[in-house]
Amino acid sequence: MPGGGPEMDDYMETLKDEEDALWENVECNRHMLSRYINPAKLTPYLRQCKVIDEQDEDEVLNAPMLPSKINRAGRLLDILHTKGQRGYVVFLESLEFYYPELYKLVTGKEPTRRFSTIVVEEGHEGLTHFLMNEVIKLQQQMKAKDLQRCELLARLRQLEDEKKQMTLTRVELLTFQERYYKMKEERDSYNDELVKVKDDNYNLAMRYAQLSEEKNMAVMRSRDLQLEIDQLKHRLNKMEEECKLERNQSLKLKNDIENRPKKEQVLELERENEMLKTKNQELQSIIQAGKRSLPDSDKAILDILEHDRKEALEDRQELVNRIYNLQEEARQAEELRDKYLEEKEDLELKCSTLGKDCEMYKHRMNTVMLQLEEVERERDQAFHSRDEAQTQYSQCLIEKDKYRKQIRELEEKNDEMRIEMVRREACIVNLESKLRRLSKDSNNLDQSLPRNLPVTIISQDFGDASPRTNGQEADDSSTSEESPEDSKYFLPYHPPQRRMNLKGIQLQRAKS
């Protein structure tokens, strides 16, 4: 015994090295194993092979420090690593049964499904019991997946119906949107047309105001020219009257000059006056001389005659003075006559000038009245044309509004008919989907599995289990394997941990 101590140590070291070499393959693929292994699927088989106990299973599945599946799978690998070579062998058998691809990844061999460990530990009855539990578990999982698949199909059909409904609603909204954009385009076109009409109206108003201003300026210029013409006519008439007055005065002077006595007659009258003065002096001298030589009687007679002569001279002087006064009065009367005649001529000139001015103003008033009548006639014609244009424009607008209203009513009726057609199509689609759903539900009910399987069917299934373990590994792997896509769409199922009653199965096998 003492001599065998070193050999035992060498043997233990060799086993430990082999164990480390075995687990080295697992550690190399630890990331892939932790990512894809579900500990809840492996722990029943590991407990059946007595590699882990209930406490280890509870620690792996329910520990609060292991929230994710990767953490739980890593903890399970750590626990199996502590179990040595047996933990490695049982772990590979569980991978061979549940995850053939991972088994091939770790060992590089094809899975054979021999279950040597569980046969050694529990015997064939334990293997049968384990396989029966796994089959029931798989059936329950398949039923749950079928239910989930039916629910998802129903949800899918519902979503398809909602999608069709949303599509129809979208078509309806597109119809309304198209109608909205069309009405918006019509409104924009009408606004552009309105702005264009306003611009045209403004341009016409500006043109009309400009023409009116030009016409008023032309009328004012015409009036100024007419006033200048009238003033020139007035000056012409005044000059004609002055010329006529000057002509009359010149004719009067000419007549006075023609009626003036001649120079010879004046000289002859002056000679006669001198001769008479000479004779008068001679007679006076004779009379003076006679007075001195005459007697007293003759002197008395001469005195009487002288007195008579003096009286006659006085009378004559009075007559001469009277004649002079009369001549002066006649001259003054002639001057007054000439003055009055001049005033008369001036008044006649003024009267004729005023008459011509009156005629001029009368003509001017007639011209202004004619212009006013023409302006009123043009204004009435413009008003009439404007009223006709406004009436025609309003009539066109009324007809346009009428046609637009008819078009809008027809478009609304068309839209309502399209919407009604879309709604009826939606109703038809809904009815078809309901009919299809009812038909599929009836087919699913016919094809669904019963909840409680008979014992004979279970025994028959387990009677055929042994050949399947040898020759149909691919079928078992397809039913027991969970793909990543299934984990996305289906909830994980945790079967209840219970042991099955095998009395009925044993009785059935005894009868057979």
Rank of each mutant, 00 (worst) to 15 (best):
G4D: 11
G5W: 11
P6D: 13
P6R: 12
E7P: 09
E7M: 10
M8D: 12
D9G: 12
D9S: 13
D10F: 13
Y11V: 08
Y11R: 13
M12H: 08
M12E: 04
M12F: 14
E13P: 13
E13W: 13
T14F: 04
T14G: 07
T14L: 03
L15P: 09
L15S: 04
L15W: 11
K16S: 08
K16N: 06
D17V: 12
D17Q: 08
E18P: 05
E18I: 15
E18Y: 05
E19S: 08
E19G: 10
E19F: 12
D20T: 07
D20H: 14
D20I: 09
D20Y: 06
D20F: 07
A21N: 02
L22F: 09
L22S: 11
W23P: 01
W23Y: 03
W23I: 03
E24C: 12
E24Y: 13
N25V: 04
N25T: 06
V26A: 03
E27V: 00
E27W: 00
E27D: 07
E27M: 04
C28K: 01
C28N: 06
C28D: 05
N29M: 02
N29I: 03
R30L: 00
R30Q: 03
R30C: 00
H31G: 03
H31P: 02
M32D: 14
L33Q: 03
L33A: 03
S34Q: 04
S34G: 04
R35W: 05
R35V: 06
R35S: 05
Y36Q: 13
Y36N: 06
I37G: 01
I37P: 01
N38E: 01
N38C: 01
P39E: 02
P39W: 02
P39M: 01
A40I: 02
A40C: 08
K41V: 04
L42R: 02
L42I: 07
T43D: 06
T43Q: 03
T43K: 07
T43L: 09
P44S: 07
P44T: 08
P44F: 02
Y45Q: 09
L46T: 06
L46F: 12
L46K: 09
R47G: 08
C49F: 15
C49R: 13
C49K: 15
K50N: 14
K50W: 06
K50L: 10
K50R: 10
K50F: 12
V51D: 04
V51K: 10
I52F: 08
I52P: 12
D53Q: 09
D53N: 10
E54C: 02
E54Y: 11
E54W: 03
Q55D: 12
Q55M: 07
D56M: 05
D56A: 08
E57I: 06
E57S: 04
E57G: 02
D58L: 07
E59R: 14
V60T: 05
V60L: 01
L61G: 12
L61N: 05
L61W: 00
N62A: 14
N62R: 05
N62V: 01
N62L: 06
N62P: 08
A63F: 05
A63P: 02
P64E: 04
P64A: 13
P64Y: 09
M65K: 03
M65L: 10
L66G: 00
L66P: 04
P67L: 11
P67W: 14
P67M: 08
P67T: 13
P67I: 12
S68H: 03
S68K: 05
S68A: 11
I70W: 08
I70F: 14
I70A: 11
N71C: 07
R72H: 04
R72I: 05
R72F: 02
A73Q: 02
A73Y: 02
A73P: 02
G74D: 06
L76N: 01
L76T: 03
L76K: 01
L76D: 01
L77I: 08
D78N: 00
D78L: 03
I79F: 06
I79D: 04
I79Y: 04
L80F: 01
L80I: 06
L80H: 02
H81V: 07
T82F: 04
K83W: 04
K83N: 06
K83H: 06
K83M: 05
K83G: 07
G84S: 04
G84Q: 09
Q85S: 12
R86S: 13
R86W: 10
G87Q: 00
Y88H: 05
Y88S: 09
Y88D: 02
Y88M: 01
V89Y: 02
V90K: 15
V90L: 06
V90S: 12
F91A: 00
F91G: 02
L92D: 15
L92S: 14
L92M: 08
E93W: 07
E93T: 14
E93D: 15
S94L: 05
L95F: 13
L95P: 04
L95Q: 02
E96D: 05
Y98C: 05
P100S: 00
K104N: 06
L105V: 00
T107P: 02
G108L: 00
G108N: 09
G108A: 09
G108E: 07
E110N: 13
P111T: 15
P111A: 15
P111I: 09
R114L: 01
R114G: 11
R114M: 01
F115A: 15
F115C: 03
F115Q: 15
F115W: 14
F115K: 10
S116Q: 02
S116A: 06
S116E: 08
T117N: 15
T117V: 01
T117R: 15
I118R: 14
I118V: 15
V119N: 15
V119P: 15
V119T: 15
E122L: 05
E122T: 03
E122G: 11
G123V: 15
G123E: 15
G123L: 15
G123A: 15
H124K: 13
E125M: 12
E125K: 04
E125P: 13
G126R: 15
G126E: 15
L127S: 13
L127H: 14
L127E: 06
T128I: 15
T128K: 02
T128Y: 15
T128C: 06
T128P: 12
T128G: 08
H129T: 14
F130Q: 13
L131D: 08
L131F: 06
M132G: 13
M132N: 01
M132R: 05
N133L: 14
N133K: 13
N133A: 05
N133M: 14
E134C: 15
E134A: 14
V135L: 06
V135M: 09
I136H: 02
I136D: 14
L138I: 12
L138P: 08
Q139S: 14
Q140A: 13
Q141P: 08
Q141E: 09
Q141G: 06
Q141H: 13
M142N: 13
M142T: 13
M142A: 12
M142Y: 14
K143H: 12
K143F: 04
K143P: 06
A144W: 11
D146V: 07
D146C: 09
D146H: 08
